[in-house]
Design a protein around this nucleic acid. Structure first.
Lengths: 331, 331
DNA sequence: AGGTTCAAGGAAAACGTGTTCCGTATGTTT
DNA sequence: AAACATACGGAACACGTTTTCCTTGAACCT
């Protein structure tokens, strides 16, 4: 016996108090059907008085929709997934939709478990997101799905991703505009798609101003510091464009240690606008904001449209925003 | 007309295929009731064949439970809320419970909106968490609630928090064990409970070894760097215990710039085990791990117990773990 | 043989809502 | 005055499951 009954009022209670039938009460509360305004008001008053909140389980069953979407992330602890989640949640909550969180921790077993759970909950749609920008295998469910950040390998699926090419190009154009002529690029592993894409954009945008092959290493401050040593040993540069804020911060630290002024001697750009790196760096970093929260919002909107019946819209690349700071502009 | 019907099989379809009634099918699939094993197997085969997944909306309505819990966070972008979320989600998913995410962004309006939504969804329970350790006003719902990280002001509510006193004390004991005799403490704003609690623990544990009043400032690397200047101007210290890894990193940076060796001249401890700070610091920081994921898991377990009928268990403080690294041990 | 017990499975109700269909009263038109 | 449209509101059903009874037949005991 699980307690005598929480005594939460149902619509029949409201109807009884208002002296109408349940169907009338339902119409009154949902602004449907043909009712006198006076009746509507009476029902609303009754609902108010009882503190009635409609049970969405009943509504879900009756309407065929659950007003819920699932968010599957392979790694929600990553700093990329989180803003996406928040943006999506924000856009969804505006439409009275709830978001259920599923962190697969990169485990295929967990993923299929969650998928089953979401299907069983008759979720209206699913958002799939990951930590990296490499395309991932699509999931197989009879529900609208949108991929965010890491697109589906199937181009017919709807995917929303960051325009990494444009982002990297914008930093280079920024450096060129400032008159820099001897640019180097330091970035992450050549096995990471984002590093490769950004490097390619840098190469093609910088043209003759690029004075060295892109340097690939790990996404760390340590690599940034080390790369400076490697670079200055052989090359004379006036700008270093980095593949991440973390690398850029390492670059700045090492340059300072070597007595090279940033940006007077060498300008530095980061990537990601990870505030804890970009703002704490000395000097603060000019960088590229990925607009991930916006990406999450856009993803949710697309999903809502698909739930509404729209067909897949293929791959969508969202613009980034260049954030100029002292590491290129000076004080 | 919303498409001719997704044609997802219902339990009646399974029952029909197996040649039994729906009630029998239900019993077979849930391992309840009295059925021949052969019948059970037949029903299971039919379900398998049809790819049947029970509709949890129906189950929710029938069982009176939604198998869902809500997570209300005032700021899910914070690095504290996230591990808590993940831990909770992990513990809940093991029990076939889903977690719906609600980020209030510190807006009371949004909070009440979400509360209404969760109540309407007949969530089985709610987890409330925040960015800071200050107690917060309890929420008023007829559902089990557990507060995580930021406890409820009502001591009768169930709250799970970090043992900040013990955490700070452990760093000081660590320093004393290493033979340090002249300890200073640099931490965050005196308006922050966590700073005050950690400072008090430091004072009472260090005793005579504390050579200066705790220094309060902001939670930033910059303040850490500045505090070193302030401190060394008047005092001779052989250890600095910091209120956060961010501050500790700033302290280390400044000490290095001043040519003071860490830890040989001065040992440094951080707090939070925020890997991006603690590991990137030079040298890596001895620090206190808050075990937030464990805290999230424990919170979820308590909530499940309360959903199961257990009564509130008041305030619970979870232990932290000291992580020794080079900033006190050397290489 | 007649009664009791038990396994097996079906019929029906319950959960809470939304919606379709239908009856009634009221007012309007010829 | 009769025919008719319309506003209003109620009865019934649907959504998909679980669970509580109830029926049936067989085995068992005295």
């Amino acid at each position: 016996m699980p307690s005598p009954r929480p005594a939460v009022p149902r619509i029949t209670d409201v109807a009884a108090l208002a002296g109408v039938s349940t169907s009338t009460a339902s119409k009154a509360l949902n602004d449907t059907g043909q009712l006198r305004e006076e009746t509507r008001a009476r029902v609303r008053r009754a609902a108010e008085q009882l503190g009635f909140t409609p049970d969405s389980r009943g509504r879900a069953l009756s309407s065929g929709r659950s007003y819920t979407v699932g968010l599957i992330t392979t790694d929600s602890s990553g700093r990329f997934s989180i803003p996406i989640m928040l943006g999506a949640e924000d856009a969804l909550s505006a439409g009275e939709m709830a978001l259920v969180l599923c962190d697969t921790r990169d485990d295929p077993l967990r993923e299929s478990h969650y998928l089953k759970s979401l299907v069983s909950r008759r979720v209206d749609g699913i958002i799939v997101t990951g930590r990296r920008t490499e395309p991932r295998a699509p999931i197989d469910v009879p529900i609208p799905v949108v991929y965010a950040f890491s697109p589906s390998t199937d181009p017919a699926d709807t995917s929303v991703m960051v325009d990494d090419h444009g982002g990297a190009a914008s930093t280079v154009r920024h450096l060129l505009t400032l008159g820099r002529q001897r640019i180097a690029h330091v970035t992450g592993p050549a096995t990471h798609r984002s590093a490769v894409v950004r490097a390619a954009a840098t190469v093609s945008t910088a043209g003759d101003a690029l004075v060295a092959e892109p340097l690939h290493g790990e996404w760390s401050e340590r690599w940034g510091r080390h790369a400076v040593d490697v670079l200055l040993r052989t090359t004379d540069v006036d700008a270093i464009s980095c593949g991440s804020d973390q690398i850029a911060r390492g670059v700045c630290d090492r340059l300072r240690e070597l007595g090279r002024a940033v940006p007077d001697d060498i300008a530095v750009t980061g990537y990601d606008n990870w505030s804890v790196m970009a703002l704490a760096s000395r000097p603060p970093l000019t960088t590229v904001d990925l607009q991930l929260e916006q990406l999450g919002r856009r993803t949710a909107q697309l999903l809502l449209e698909m739930i509404g019946g729209a067909s897949s819209s293929g791959l969508l690349e969202l613009p980034t925003e260049l954030i100029p700071r002292e590491s290129t502009l000076g004080t």
